[in-house]
Computed example of a mutant assay.
Amino acid sequence: MSLDKVVKHVVSVVGEEYEERVRTILKTLIEEFRIPEKEAAATVIKKFKEEGVQIKDATKKIADIDGSETNVTIVAKVLSISKGKGKAKAFARVGDDTGHARMILTSNAEVELEAGKVYRFKNVMVNEDGSLLVTKNTTARELEEDIEVKPLTMIGVVVSVAKNSGHVLRCPECGTPLKGGACTEHGKVEEPVERVEARVVVDNGRVARRFTLLPEHIEALTGLTLEKAREIKNKFDNEAVRQVIIDSLIGKYVRVEYLNRVPQSIEFTTEIPTEVV
């Protein structure tokens, strides 16, 4: 990252009238004292704030984040959350109408997030790789509005179909798959929810991702309806149902558009496998 780029970012936060002073301070911190650029930028912003300068929110769209910013504000929808490890208490995937980003919640972060909700994040750090760092200084205010999130696209080959795929019976109360006609939470179920599902892995040669295919996906790709799946299972077993899905999907190239593990759309393709975009 160049000095000019760091100066541009800090000036966007404190104001153009301070550009000459900002450049002088940053040049001293970075070139003479060898302070890392992002740390130097944060130091200068803090200094101006302590002097009473009105700090602007560097509001950004996700697609515009380039890895040089500190003190960034974004409005994004939380798509998924997973448990963290080490110095990260959680990982999240967030998105807006321009793209997606990985979010890392540090162990001292005080925000609590829920998948599916939209938040206004303030004082977000940005790592060099474009991932977002939520620290103790970050705030997240839930918004009532919803935003349309641009889906990710992946083209790859289906390499596996999980063993529990096929004709699935679920508890109508909690959605848990039944074992021996019973739910681990609600006991024996008299009228389960029947679905044709498949958990598949798509690999593009660089990354492999797991997706859960719903009845509409499976019928479109394989022609397998709930009635057909029920008939096959009654005549043979669920492994026979799974085998129909395997024969139709394994080794085939697909184009997947998705926000999380459930695709918004999936179709066969002759396109060359690509990285997630």
Rank of each mutant, 00 (worst) to 15 (best):
R206C: 04
D237C: 02
A101P: 03
F268A: 11
G84L: 06
I250D: 02
T184R: 14
R21P: 00
V72H: 09
T106N: 12
E231M: 01
P36A: 05
N260V: 10
R261Y: 12
E267P: 00
S165L: 06
I35Q: 05
H217E: 05
R23F: 02
V72C: 13
G223W: 01
P215I: 09
T222Q: 06
E142F: 01
T70M: 14
V53C: 07
V149I: 10
V158W: 00
L213M: 13
S12Q: 12
S107V: 10
K87D: 06
R21A: 11
V118M: 14
A229G: 01
T270Q: 11
V262P: 01
V11S: 06
R120H: 12
D129S: 07
V159S: 02
A88N: 11
S2F: 04
E227V: 00
Y253N: 07
V161C: 04
M154K: 07
T135W: 11
V13C: 08
I104G: 03
G175T: 10
S248A: 15
L26T: 07
K188Q: 13
K117V: 04
T98I: 14
I55G: 02
L105W: 10
V6H: 03
A92F: 07
G95E: 12
V244Y: 00
R23G: 03
L113C: 08
V254Y: 04
D203Y: 09
K233M: 11
E19H: 02
L113E: 06
E142W: 02
T269R: 08
V207C: 03
G130H: 02
Y18R: 12
V124S: 13
